[in-house]
Write a protein that binds this DNA or RNA. Structure first.
Lengths: 131, 131
DNA sequence: CGGTATCCCTAAGGATACTG
DNA sequence: CAGTATCCTTAGGGATACCG
């Protein structure tokens, strides 16, 4: 069974729960939450990218971390990887249908945060001043 | 100015951009993305919690990490903290209006991932088998 | 109850070098 | 171009103990 519940009990609910310690959805949420995964998904939400183009788009990421992040996302079924064996080789990354849905929601979150920058900055200043 | 753009240029856009290295929105997205922050926000989306109740809801979190996480979220203006000085003391945590908006979007992401568990599990099995 | 302080260890992740 | 491999440093985060 691929589902999971949060509380052990006599009549377990057979639905996934991000609060459940070993649930796939909780793991996936963590995979998506890392800074590089977030940005990679947002970038791929704009369209397909080749490795180094994606690396330029996600400013500050190292080759190692981008590669590692993409492997995780591919394993989770969020990103597809297509190799075109030319010389020099080219590898095209894109979102799967599920990846598109994830990226869309991530975009809404990013939009909200971008709009809220003044509010967040004010909150931080107030908090730091109060200390 | 509390906004930020991603590309330096002669006519900088005065809008926030999560891709920009030093942008507040990028930092905030990271703060929200950590596993404990995600779960704390999702929990508080269900209603207010006292410290230890929240700790029970977010299974697996240590006192230290929950405390640290809540401080970060409070500083970002996503969570409010109210102390009622009784004996024993009680501290009530809740979402701010901005926190509510963030939590709502996080919930949509979590719902999607919970629904997609079978799909993700299948993708992982396929990926691992292919290695 | 609701934390903070300390110790300690693992793992994230950057820099660099090398390969198909 | 698109990575992998190695090294090395830092910081995330658990365990424990203690305080208002």
């Amino acid at each position: 069974m691929s589902t999971c519940d949060s509380e052990p009990g006599p009549s377990p609910e057979l639905v996934a729960d991000v609060f459940a310690r070993g649930c796939t959805s909780r793991r996936t949420l963590e995979d998506i939450g890392t800074k590089w995964a977030q940005l990679a998904l947002l970038a791929l939400g704009e369209g397909g990218y080749r490795f180094n183009a994606l690396r330029r788009r996600v400013a500050g990421v190292s080759e190692k971390m981008l590669s590692q992040t993409l492997q995780t996302l591919e394993r989770d079924g969020l990103v597809s990887r297509e190799v075109v064996s030319t010389i020099p080789p080219r590898v095209e990354y894109a979102l799967t249908p599920l990846g598109e849905e994830v990226a869309r929601r991530l975009r809404e979150l990013a939009d909200l945060l971008e709009r809220s920058v003044p509010l967040v900055d004010a909150a931080r200043n107030a908090y730091d001043a109060r200390a």
